[in-house]
Design a protein around this nucleic acid. Structure first.
Lengths: 354, 354
DNA sequence: CTGAAAGCGCTTACAG
DNA sequence: CTGAAAGCGCTTACAG
């Protein structure tokens, strides 16, 4: 590798001058600057980022910790982070934890050793002590998806309200027996969505029926659990699934049990993944601005790192709550309209996937 | 941050001794070793990875360059890479290029500056000069998905053969007018899949009809293009889509055009994403061992980095071709069986999504 | 086995 | 404006 000394030799100046000329912000005689730039180009000089980082105490690297990049919300989130980071010259280290706090802590330690300039945490884990500790150590931390009161910067959606709106929509369109298929209640975001579901019921004076609330911690079990649920008791008239991947499995289970979507059972999801409009039927779901959330988290992170936050308000932790939107497609129907739109050929519809 | 000097002071030895004691592999008196370990623990000493990297010329970091983590094959691939890397103590920098060679080159340069120990390249870009150049520079490089003759380590599937098998299956089950919905022909993997399609036709004595071959470089356009295709000419009896996301859009378009899957048109995909069994109908598709491919690439990379490859054969570039498997589900049917299994209620079936 | 010294490749106060 | 020197925090040949 060619070093700063090689450039210095070729340009006929000292290493200090090369460093200054290349930095751009320290005054150097125009003619020497040109000589240095020419030599650097000629030798294809690439400054050693480790030496630079060691000296400056910063590396232009951001850690991004997610539960699992295979959960389809995270690719979009991480593109939001990475695109924004890249535009400002930062690079992203990706870490999957599977919501295992010990892996999360292991990664945090490793990232600190590598002197990342900050850590974006998109896990919704069960513990938080290590996070406030991390923040108090002075390293910039931004939470994504999850918040920790108002003590740490965060970018989130209002899961409670988004879920309430979705369920309120079902109620408004005539559904009365609404099941909720939910994820691990150990994770804040699923608890919040459950609270929203309860709130919508309460606001409409509907009683909460605990037998209609399914907690399914592992997405892969969703299909089986819903099949058993449908086999064991009278069907609900709607299912609110706490994520699109769960909604997909719910729809499959509903159809395989001999019911039609949305004729017999309406299904609503949460996420609005890219595939949602192409499912059969196209999925009604709550849209989260995933890419924008990633981008916003990265922006917040970079302004923390670069110390742009100067006023007291800017220095205080900020929680950015982004808007969700209910996207109505064809997996839900209006039950207040008694002329059934999809009602013909009922037996076939019921049987075709059974 | 606490440094090696702090530990040395507390342990009452020199920094050199601390370094040796902590390294584990250099002999140190048992009693001093214990003192050092105790002091290190007490101070929660974390060695500075930048200083270590600067001295040793390696960083325990691997670069992973993909086209777009939002293309759903890459989350699994990258988990394979990351899980394997993590087990050996490595960390992964993720880079998205959108198949833009200039972004790819920019990232390669940046990764080199950061002294990554190797680069795994999963892009299937149109140029390759910079890759052989990179490899010749001595930095370990492993290709994923794509290969470059036998000049660079690679982990791939036999796209040509996998596509041939899929199309041969369609032919064997009585399909005669088989369309192919394909991706950007500038990318090797799609060209190879197209070649496999042609080969299957040829082997069965079927003529290739160019009007049945659709090149759709941008997945998002797939639905519209297939709608137009179906509106403009008599329908094919099967569609081979070169990826599952395309297959999903094809199924939607087929149904919206008033045809049934698989009664009127069989659809076959490529990837076997997690959602494939839950689609409606469950998707027949070619399974790629995505996670294993990522893991294999990371293993190859690590053995290159750590110089385990010692015999001449081990040092030579290796191309690992992994097996694909055709997973038959319900989106294809057997046309040689003239009792149509799904044939009842034909008009409803055609109309229900139109 | 252990310590003092050199050096990895930068940046930046310190002189001039 | 420019150079020589110090130092970021490690590791490792060199002596002892």
């Amino acid at each position: 590798m060619v070093t700063i000394k090689d450039v210095a030799r070729v340009a006929g100046v000292s290493a200090s001058t090369v460093s200054r000329a290349l930095s751009g912000r320290i005054p150097v005689e125009e003619s020497t600057r040109r000589k240095v730039l020419k030599a650097a180009k000629e030798l294809n000089y690439q400054p050693n980022a480790l030496a630079k980082g060691l000296k400056e105490g910063r590396t232009g690297t951001i850690g991004l910790i997610v539960p699992n990049i295979c959960n389809p919300v995270f690719p979009l989130v991480s593109r939001g982070v990475e695109d924004t980071a890249r535009k400002s010259g930062y690079t992203v280290i990706l870490c999957n934890t599977d919501e295992d706090v010990s892996i999360e802590m292991e990664y945090i330690q490793k990232l600190r050793k590598k002197w990342v300039d900050g850590i974006i945490l998109a896990t919704s884990g069960k513990q938080s002590g290590h996070i406030t500790e991390l923040k108090d150590s002075g390293l910039p931390v931004v939470l994504l998806i999850r918040r920790l009161e108002d003590r740490v910067d965060a970018v989130v959606v209002d899961n409670n309200e988004a879920a309430r709106q979705a369920v309120a929509y079902l109620i408004r369109t005539g559904h009365r027996k609404i099941a909720m298929v939910n994820g691990d209640q150990g994770l804040t975001l699923y608890r919040e969505r459950f609270q929203g579901y309860l709130r919508a019921l309460r606001e409409s004076g509907l009683a909460f029926d605990p037998t209609l609330a399914l907690e399914i911690p592992i997405v892969q079990n969703c299909y089986e659990t819903v099949r058993e649920f449908l086999a064991a008791r009278p069907a609900p008239d709607a299912v609110f699934a706490a994520s699109d991947p769960m909604a997909l499995q719910v729809m499959r289970a509903v159809k395989d049990a001999g019911y039609r979507v949305p004729d017999d059972i309406s299904v609503i999801g949460f996420d609005d993944l890219e595939s949602a409009p192409f499912l059969d039927p196209p999925l009604t779901t709550v849209r989260q601005p995933l890419y924008q959330m990633g981008a916003a988290a990265a922006e917040r992170m970079i302004s923390r790192i670069e110390g742009k936050a100067t006023t007291p308000e800017e220095r205080a932790p900020s929680v950015l709550v982004m808007d969700t939107e209910l996207i109505v497609r064809k997996s839900t129907r209006d039950r207040t309209d008694e002329k059934e739109q999809y009602g013909s050929c009922e037996t076939i519809g019921k049987g075709q996937n059974g």
